[in-house]
């Protein structure tokens, strides 16, 4: 495998990792008004993602950074073509980030309720926007021979973008519900389970459609097989939820994403931005890539850095593995008290 292919795969892995991780915190945030009926419910939902969301978001920064680093031609075509949608994503991510931290910096009901709503709104905007961007970059953007967008500010918002948006949101909602079922206890856990059982078959459809269309358009027998795995994962996830097996349901739902992403990126390769104007204008891995020297440096850095990152992120998840309950927890630890 040459370095450009390796880095295409690395970028695909980073985006998949981002959706897999941030997907559940997007989902939990979006479900706050649905599953969090009482303030205590919402409180425990937010606590379940509190220590994790920022680390998850770095996967996005790294994914975008890797696109820029390995394929500047992709970065410089994709982002300006979807200028306003990306600005909207940034808006969502900004308000959501500050809301997580500032919500608990002042204690009145309206304050709490306002920032909680902002967390939900920001997460919805970001999930939809990122989904739209990914849908467009795999199924087509209106770009000319120079990689410049034609047709005005909203030309990039095609059906493909809408499909991607709904797909990421649908995946995230059930992913968040399953995360909650796994992570909290009490009413929220039961409601999350019921939500996942009811909505998982529907929520998976846009993602399967996106993967299916990408496969039919550019795929190989391998991506076809991957698509079947994704479809099968939905069935498995649903039956596991029915049996109240939260762990394996969560795992199966994760397989849905991994297999779908593998189908999409695998089928799209080597095109990184298909042109809806003329296939001759497609931006490919070879057009967009940096020199092999730079890719080699990045390979070394990622080869050493990524396992370390995975190691300590896994450790954080392990530290915060305890199931949370909606009851106010008095676990102010003995160690903090000075002797």
């Amino acid at each position: 495998m040459d370095l450009q292919t390796l880095w295409f795969a690395a970028v695909a892995v980073l985006w998949t990792g981002f959706l897999l991780l941030e997907g559940f915190d997007f989902g939990v945030a979006a479900l706050l008004p649905v599953l969090g009926r009482k303030p205590a419910d919402r409180h425990v939902m937010l606590r379940s993602i509190g220590p994790l969301w920022d680390g998850n978001e770095v996967w996005l920064i790294t994914a975008v950074g890797a696109v820029f680093a390995a394929f500047p031609g992709w970065y410089a075509t994709w982002l300006p073509a979807l200028y306003l949608p990306f600005v909207l994503v940034l808006f969502g991510l900004i308000i959501r980030a500050v809301a997580f931290e500032w919500r608990h910096s002042h204690h009145t009901e309206p304050w709490d309720a306002t920032w909680t709503r902002i967390i939900t709104a920001g997460s919805l905007i970001a999930a939809l926007g990122i989904g739209a961007a990914l849908g467009a970059t795999t199924l087509g953007l209106p770009i000319d021979a120079d990689g410049t967008r034609v047709g005005g500010a909203f030309a990039g918002l095609s059906w493909a973008a809408l499909l991607g948006a709904v797909a990421v949101l649908g995946f995230s909602l059930v992913h968040g519900a399953l995360f909650l079922a796994l992570k909290v206890d009490g009413d929220v856990r039961l409601r999350a389970r019921a939500f996942a059982l009811r909505w998982s078959p529907v929520a998976a459809l846009p993602l399967l459609a996106w993967a299916g269309i990408t496969h039919l358009r550019y795929g190989t027998p391998i991506t076809g097989a991957l698509w079947l795995v994704a479809a099968l994962a939905v069935v498995v996830a649903w039956t596991r939820i029915r049996l109240d097996r939260e762990g394996s349901a969560f795992a199966a739902w994760a397989v849905l994403l991994v297999a779908s992403a593998a189908t999409i990126f695998g089928a799209a390769y080597p095109v990184v931005v298909p042109s809806t104007v003329d296939v001759a204008f497609d931006v490919t891995v070879a057009d967009a890539s940096v020199s092999d020297y730079t890719l080699m440096i990045m390979t070394w850095a990622a080869g050493i850095g990524l396992p370390v990152v995975l190691g300590y992120q896994t450790w954080t998840y392990w530290v915060f593995r305890k199931r949370l309950t909606a009851e106010p927890v008095q676990e102010e630890p003995a160690e903090v008290v000075p002797a």
Binding site: G65, A66, A69, P72, Y75
Partner: peptide
Amino acid sequence: VGDVFGSLLALEALL
């Protein structure tokens, strides 16, 4: 600047 600049941003994120 792609051949130089992007890699520094990516390394910043990763490391």
